[in-house]
Amino acid sequence: MAQSVRPNTLFRNLNAKIAAMPMIITVLVIFVGCTIWTVVHSFTKSRMLPKLEFVGFDQYERLWGTSRWLISIENLFIYGACSLVLSLVIGFILAALLDQKIRFENTLRSIILFPFALSFVVTGLIWQWILNPDLGIQSVVRDLGWTSFAFDPLYNPDIVIYGVLIAGIWQGSGLIMVLMLAGLRGIDEDIWNASRIDGIPKWKTYLFIVIPMMKPVFVTAIVLITSGIVKVYDLIIAQTGGGPGIASEVPAKYVMDSMFLKQNLGQGFAASTMMLLCVLIIIIPYAYLEFGGRRNGK
């Protein structure tokens, strides 16, 4: 029946609110609740079981005094910086090459992107095999006659992280290439026509006109790559197991080992809170640029 009184706003669109309950619960319990729980417990001396005995910043002091954590952080930075730069450069160059109205474009794109469909575990195991010093690339090159050739990143603590990097780039650069290609295709053909009429060389057009126009794509790519870097875990487990020794440890693995192997929950919570902090440092400026800027700017 038609109502003449304003209905209670709580019950208006009740079905929609009921349908959104899983989302609301996920947001409140998991994304907000669990995060706060972990951050709070990082200030306790929880070991085997979580308990609320606060010890201030003790866990963090211990964390930053542990060589394994310091190596993890160092690895994360090396891996992160290299993978960010390489993914962007490779992704963009490949996209630009594919954008030259070439033949076999679809085939090539499929080949470059297919590793992205594979899991990190599979990726890690593939490259573990290829980089195997006794039977992989190193031995093949030596058999060809270059007997002093040495390329054994997985057995050399100094360069092991680069061995992981090769696998990571192989798996993930296709995604960046696809994003960049979509970005390039989104650029008006008239821009190219205009620059050709003005006689600007192609590389200059890319560098000074196209790339600045693709800023949103780059921002998205950077956010994707960096948020992926922080999560690196499976790849290490499969490819190196953190070795040789502790040379390829990463923060995510440090957290997992603290929580589930060493039964040192407090350390795990502190380390994961540090990871969250890393992400916040990346995300907050991005969110500000993307949403705050838009509201004020346009």
Binding site: V27, C34, T35, V39, V230, Y233, L265, A271, I283
Partner: peptide, 18 residues
């Protein structure tokens, strides 16, 4: 918005409470 933000929280932060 919080849900989207959740996509960027490292899983390690939420693993144990879950």
């Amino acid at each position: 918005a919080v849900l989207l933000f959740g996509a960027f929280i490292p899983y390690q932060v939420m693993i144990y409470p879950i």
